[in-house]
């Protein structure tokens, strides 16, 4: 009889342990809070900065977007944010029908597989229309958008100081991470012509109120509300009146959002007067980090095993 009880208990425990073993031979998992935004490129140029993209999560395959670009592209970086990344997925980006190769590993990944693939595409894009298409293999997901950030040179235009940031920071209820901040380090003069901030946010939900601040000034509420397409928000802000002469800061606050992922923030400040030489500094890319089983899952599993073993022993 005792042997029978032991066998029954062992079966129950074996069932739970079996369920736990499957992850170790499998692909996907909780990916953590991802990579905070950081500056990937900055500089000064006689010309301008372009940030364009579209068009939300649609599961189209191929997913296509066109970009009209001016002459003199000095720097260009392409982003493909993707939902539901798993290790056996792949993605192939083509620019004007030229393949950038097939990739299986994204540059940044967070939460339940919100991923971002970044491509240096300087020299791959050209003046005029550029067709970018994404073919992919992803069983239950797809691209949120295709976004292109480009810096172009035009000697007739005023000098512009710019900072380009990237990352994939999961501000979420699960991680209890409520805000993210990025500093555009450096000094700028008082007399500027224009100051423009672009922000790109993934997974914002209408009605779940988030906040966006620039140097502690509120730029918008419920900024992440899928207005540029499903789960995709690409915004352009005039921040001239809020500009500081040193270390400008953008701050994303999660507010009521359960998940929100800031992906990019770009600041471009157009000078009144030329200040020094033009330059472009491209920085090293950060590695994505943070993965594992959520703490709550472990606690519940262990607690359940202890309780049911205790319950069966107590009844005996």
């Amino acid at each position: 009889m005792a042997a029978q009880h032991l066998g029954d208990r062992m079966r129950i425990i074996a069932f739970i342990i079996l369920m736990m073993l499957v992850p170790s031979v499998s692909a996907g998992e909780w990916r953590g809070e991802g990579t905070p935004l950081y500056i990937i490129a900055e500089g000064k140029i006689h010309g301008g900065v372009l940030v364009k993209g579209g068009h939300g999560y649609t599961m189209e395959n191929p997913y296509e977007e066109y970009f009209e670009l001016p002459e003199g592209i000095e720097y260009a970086r392409l982003y493909v944010p993707m939902w539901n990344y798993n290790d056996d997925d792949w993605l192939e980006v083509k620019i004007n029908d030229e393949s950038l190769g097939r990739r299986s590993v994204p540059d940044y990944v967070a939460a339940w597989g919100v991923a971002s693939y970044a491509y240096p595409v300087t020299g791959k894009v050209s003046a005029g229309k550029n067709k970018v298409s994404v073919n992919y293999y992803n069983k239950n997901g797809g691209p949120y958008s295709i976004v292109l950030i480009a810096v172009y040179k035009n000697a007739t235009l005023p000098q512009t100081r710019f900072w380009i940031s990237e990352g994939n920071n999961a501000l979420s209820y699960v991680t209890k991470k409520d805000s993210a901040e990025l500093v555009f380090s450096g000094e700028i003069p008082k007399d500027v012509k224009k100051a423009t901030l672009w922000t790109m946010i993934i997974a914002g939900t209408e009605g779940e109120i988030d906040y966006l601040y620039f140097n502690s000034n509120l730029l918008g509420k419920d900024v992440g509300r899928s207005k540029s397409g499903a789960y995709f928000d690409l915004d352009r802000w005039d921040v001239k009146e809020f500009l500081s002469t040193v270390n400008n800061t953008v701050r994303f606050e999660r507010g009521d959002e359960i998940y929100i992922h800031p992906f990019n923030a770009v600041l471009a400040v157009e000078y009144q007067h030329e200040r020094g030489e033009d330059y472009l500094e491209i920085k090293d890319q950060s590695a994505s980090k943070g993965r594992g089983i959520p703490f709550a899952v472990m606690v519940v599993l262990v607690g359940s095993v202890i309780f049911f073993v205790y319950r069966s022993r107590r009844k005996k």
Binding site: V22, S26, G28, I293, L301, F308
Partner: peptide, 22 residues
């Protein structure tokens, strides 16, 4: 505890591994 197993453990399990079965 059974509710926690459904709502936490198996929900995590499903969200993480649902791709395996297409």
């Amino acid at each position: 505890l059974l509710a926690a197993l459904i709502g936490i453990v198996f929900r995590w399990f499903w969200q993480t591994f649902n791709d395996l079965l297409g």
